[in-house]
Amino acid sequence: MAGLVSIRNLRVRFDGNEALRGVDFDVARGEAVGLVGESGCGKSVTWLAALGLLPGKATITGSVMLDGHELLGAPASQLDHVRGGRIAMIFQDPASALNPVHRVGRQVTEALRLHRGMDGAAARAEARRLFDLVGIPDAGRRIEAYPHEMSGGQNQRVMIAMALAGQPELLIADEPTTALDATIQAQILDLLRRLQAETGMALVLISHDLGVVAEMCTRVGVMYGGRIIEEAAEADLFARPGHPYTQGLLAARPDMAGPRRRLEAINGGVPEPWNFPPGCAFAPRCTVMTAACDAEVPALHTIATGHRAACWRAG
């Protein structure tokens, strides 16, 4: 598959603490790739940094290439064209992205004006089409509603419609269903799957829920302590996890089928950026760690075809 986004050695510091410690990650055109890991491991910061959405105090180094063009340090005018145009991002909480005092339809027509230069009747017609596309019933009337008059699931659909307004080549969905009820989550995931198939856009699905990513993505990256620690095709990752953290995550999740078993908890907790261990960030919680793990950070290396892990013992 042709490359679309290529992230290399991406590092982010906040107030002297390194939150991202060298992220390498690629997204190909049209693919659905998942990014999993527990809270604080750097999933959101990776994409906020890539899109220039972090506050000014963040120090960012490394490289983020979109179709061969560097995004880090790119002029604001170029980033404005990329954000919402070529790459759109949706978040867990639609309320934070929608303007409470504007009607939802107007927010979509505004995005259409910005990214596609559409105005007036053409923009309104396109907004309606997008509302239909994302499955908002009675689109003609709902376009006139304010965010607070819609349910969480409907607002998430509005946010997706806004994201689609720029006809993006890549949609970053950051925990898009985490705040939603199970049956509504199923609806939104279905919608994202359908839109991806229809538009051919690539999807990066960020989630702490391994099941969500398993269902939606063909490839998965696992993050821990500000790095990608494992990356593989979805089926390989779940069948043959190589990194002890990935193995731990899978064993800690209760199953919906099969015999009920005691969960295997991972000891301890996720490290904070100000007290990352010197070597492998997972070493203090790892049951198979050795002296080498404390001494040096293991590099992400190939352990099988299309399967990489950052553990000395994997492979």
Binding site: A182, T183, Q185, A186, Q187, L189, D190, D209, L210, G211, V212, A214, E215, M216, E234, F238, D255, M256, A257
Partner: peptide, 15 residues
């Protein structure tokens, strides 16, 4: 509606 990895036992019903 519970997302799972691997084959599902119940056919997904989207309400």
């Amino acid at each position: 509606a519970v997302p799972v990895s691997g084959p599902r036992r119940l056919e997904r019903i989207v309400l």
